[in-house]
Design a protein around this nucleic acid. Sequence first.
DNA 1: TTGCTCCTCACGTCACGTGAGGTGGC
DNA 2: TTGCTCCTCACGTCACGTGAGGTGGC
Lengths: 285, 285
Amino acid sequence: MFLTGEFSKIARVSKRSLQYYDEIGLLKPAYTDAQSGYRYYSARQLPRLNRILALKELGLTLQQIARMLEDDISEDEIRGMLLMQKSQLEQSLMQDLQRFRRIELLLQHPTEQAPDVVLKSVPAQRFLSMRTHISSLQTGWELILYMVRTLAQFAETRSINHFIAITHAETLTDDDIDVEFGFVLEENIDSPITISEDYDLTLNELPAVPTMATLVHLGGPATTNLAYGALGMWLEANNYGFTGPQREVFIEFPFPANDEDIVIEIQFPVKPMHNHDLLLSALPD
Amino acid sequence: MFLTGEFSKIARVSKRSLQYYDEIGLLKPAYTDAQSGYRYYSARQLPRLNRILALKELGLTLQQIARMLEDDISEDEIRGMLLMQKSQLEQSLMQDLQRFRRIELLLQHPTEQAPDVVLKSVPAQRFLSMRTHISSLQTGWELILYMVRTLAQFAETRSINHFIAITHAETLTDDDIDVEFGFVLEENIDSPITISEDYDLTLNELPAVPTMATLVHLGGPATTNLAYGALGMWLEANNYGFTGPQREVFIEFPFPANDEDIVIEIQFPVKPMHNHDLLLSALPD
DNA sequence: TTGCTCCTCACGTCACGTGAGGTGGC
DNA sequence: TTGCTCCTCACGTCACGTGAGGTGGC
């Protein structure tokens, strides 16, 4: 029989760990002196302790390990837990690999130049909008100004969130752009709504996007192309591909439009282009 | 200006996170109402928030991020932090990959058959021992019994730890085995010590082993070969190679020797045989 | 005025590390 | 008897999630 200190030296585990395993019932000493509280471990407990350590090395939590060491566990349940852990490790590997590559990329470029692209998931939203074709970005911009101005009073009486511009054209040509403008709503509304003789707004749903690459841009339309370029390079370098129409969310858009005060979030629905399954099979050794 | 709730929706961060970033000074609201405590964020704070999120995605801690966003930081310091994180990610990748493979191995074999091999680092120890050649394992066993018995009374007067047997022979042949037997001491001792007419014990140092593969075995010499086999298979499957002589640590060794009560820890100094540098360069994409 | 949002505690998470303060065995 | 070891609290870790309980603005 060994006291905590001796046993910890033999097994090369900290005393605190042994105490903790006792506390959570994972490994009780063979005998505990009721009066002094001294723990006495037997050499025969080493196999159990080593199994605990071996399982811990696989990244399992102590709770999971405790379950795996119970008597009434089936081989199937054990396999299930191992399979779960395996897929979690795979997740973690992919994430770390992404991070690793992003850091490599950052190291190649001055930090100030790197755009702060953030991936988010975006839920479906109620979207009160109109869709049309325009012949130039300039036309589009004027249409945006017109709509926002016209809808200003409407916005005051309804709960309106942000103004969003969507570019549907897959290939951007300068003289025919398929665009959609509108507002995100929280409440339900009878649609369509006529805002002028020329334009009707209809209510539809902006689809949810599981992976949206976003980049905030400070400034008006004159400089947004810079942000687009940076985002595009980021996506290419990190091996993401487009999966849907891009969005521009006007977060701050004062009247009269002062370019310096405009804050836009550029959004691209994306998906990773690398082949995950390929990775683990391609590893050396 | 946006309240916490609105800002959290725009940036798709939880309110609690914004509160926490405020609390630790990472991102203070543009304005905080002194009386109500209400936080007001400006759209112009989105770039900073997104930089925080982008850096968080790299696995940096909020403390590190806070440092990176300070004004007086140099490009070199930033590079240093990124390089550190890069190497940590590499560590983490290697570890997860090991775990992943070990689980794959476990899944191929019934759980009960898998030996609980544990890797530890072992420090250098004072070793009072004798070294000799023996002609069979049986001879070695008898010598061990003799030594342990002879040193029993010695052990009572000195602080003696465990009895350890080391096999130096690189190729085990049945008729010429180079072995070393002795005790680990904690105190210093004048060496050599004569324990009988035939044997002198000398004090030397058991070298430290950074990576020791260990396996606990219950039972006497008749069954240790099973443990050796299991350990060998584990090492091969996990791609470890031997780097030094094997040890047997007698953790429990009663008199008279009752095989069932013997507890031995088998130790192999090992090192990983896979090429780490190769891994990251061999990845697809 | 009624809701909705905001706020500030404060506990819980996970597996211990690290003292503080006190007792027990050789 | 003096040290050394043991013990039990109990806080700290990291980045929030999750209520509880209470106030403020439209």
